[in-house]
Amino acid sequence: MTLEILKTKEELRNLIDAYAYLGDEKKISEQMGLFTPDAVYKVYMNDFLAANVSGTDTLEKEFSGHASLVKTYFTLNGQHTVKIDGDTATGVSFSQIKMIRESEGKNILTDYSVKYDDKYVHQNGKWLIKERIGYFLIVEARPLNN
């Protein structure tokens, strides 16, 4: 493995971690800077296509609308495997996402176990997300006791 490949793998991991950090902090407009302007974002809940959005303008509206309903996000990234091919790459990553929403005066914690399939491109000296497909494999919601 060359030093260049190791550097690229680190840059791609940093991209995925930045996506999580900015999402947790609800810095949606900054998060859009991690995508290509024509990015595609899809979400599957089991086998149901729950979201299919193209372009960062639309994506920012979708993310902002969702974030307005969430009191707190907490994301923990796990494995991240990439295949690099010049200025493009593909990746698979896994995340545990916790969201707290209020419902009927109670805080509801929802745990999501997510697998992401990504396509990345290197443009203007940095790696960006071109396509992100999230497979929400396990979803559990329960009242928070604090």
Score class of each variant (00 low, 15 high):
Ser64Glu: 09
Lys115Glu: 15
Ile100Met: 04
Gly105His: 14
Asp47His: 14
Thr75Leu: 02
Gly105Met: 05
Glu140Gln: 13
Ser54Gln: 12
Gly86Trp: 06
Ile97Lys: 03
Ala51Met: 13
His66Phe: 14
Thr75Gly: 05
Trp127Gly: 06
Asn124Ile: 10
Met99Ala: 09
Tyr116Asn: 11
Thr110Glu: 01
Ile108Glu: 00
Tyr73Asp: 08
Asp57Gly: 06
Lys98Cys: 00
Thr90Cys: 15
Asp118Leu: 08
Lys98Thr: 13
Glu102Gln: 05
Lys130Arg: 13
Leu59Glu: 00
Lys115Pro: 04
Asn52Gln: 15
Leu49Trp: 04
Lys106Ile: 03
Leu49Gln: 11
Asp57Thr: 10
His80Asn: 14
Thr90Asp: 06
Arg132Glu: 08
Lys119Met: 10
Ser103Phe: 07
Tyr73Thr: 11
Tyr73His: 08
Glu131Pro: 06
Arg101Gln: 04
Leu137Ile: 15
Asn124Gln: 09
Ala50Ser: 12
Asn46Leu: 08
Asp117Val: 12
Thr72Tyr: 11
Leu76Asn: 07
Lys98Pro: 05
His122Pro: 00
Asn124Lys: 14
Leu137Phe: 10
Ala141Tyr: 07
Leu59Lys: 03
Gly134Trp: 08
Ile100Pro: 04
His66Glu: 14
Phe94Lys: 15
His122Phe: 01
Arg101Cys: 04
Arg101Leu: 00
Gln79Asn: 14
Gly134His: 02
Ser64Cys: 01
Phe136Tyr: 13
Tyr112Gln: 13
Ala141Gln: 15
Ile138Val: 15
Tyr73Asn: 02
Asn52Leu: 11
Asp47Leu: 07
Ala67His: 08
Lys126Tyr: 06
Gly55Asn: 05
Lys115Asn: 11
Glu102His: 10
Asn52Arg: 12
Arg101Val: 01
Leu49Ser: 05
Ile100Asp: 01
Ile133Asn: 02
Ile138His: 09
Ala141Pro: 10
Phe63His: 07
Phe94Thr: 14
Val53Ile: 15
Gln79Cys: 11
Ala141Gly: 13
Ser68Thr: 06
Thr72Asn: 09
Thr88Gly: 12
Val92Cys: 12
Ser93Arg: 10
Thr90Arg: 11
Tyr112Leu: 13
Ile97Cys: 06
Gly134Leu: 11
Pro143Tyr: 11
Glu104Val: 03
Val139Arg: 09
Arg142Lys: 15
Gly65His: 02
Ile100Asn: 05
Lys126Pro: 00
Val82Asp: 06
Asp85Leu: 05
Leu109Pro: 01
Val82Ile: 07
Lys61Trp: 01
Thr56Ala: 02
Asn107Ile: 02
Ser113Pro: 01
Thr81Ala: 06
Ser64Pro: 01
Asn107Met: 05
Ile133Thr: 15
Lys130Gly: 03
Phe63Ile: 14
Asn77Tyr: 00
Glu140Ser: 07
Asn77Phe: 00
Leu59Asp: 02
Ile138Phe: 08
Gly78Leu: 09
Thr81Phe: 06
Pro143Phe: 05
Ile129Met: 15
Thr110Cys: 00
Ala89Lys: 06
Lys83Cys: 04
Ser68Glu: 06
Tyr135Trp: 05
Ile129Thr: 13
Arg132Leu: 07
Lys98Leu: 14
Lys115Leu: 10
Met99Phe: 02
Asp47Trp: 00
Arg101His: 05
Glu60Gln: 03
Lys115Ala: 12
Ser113Thr: 01
Asn107Tyr: 09
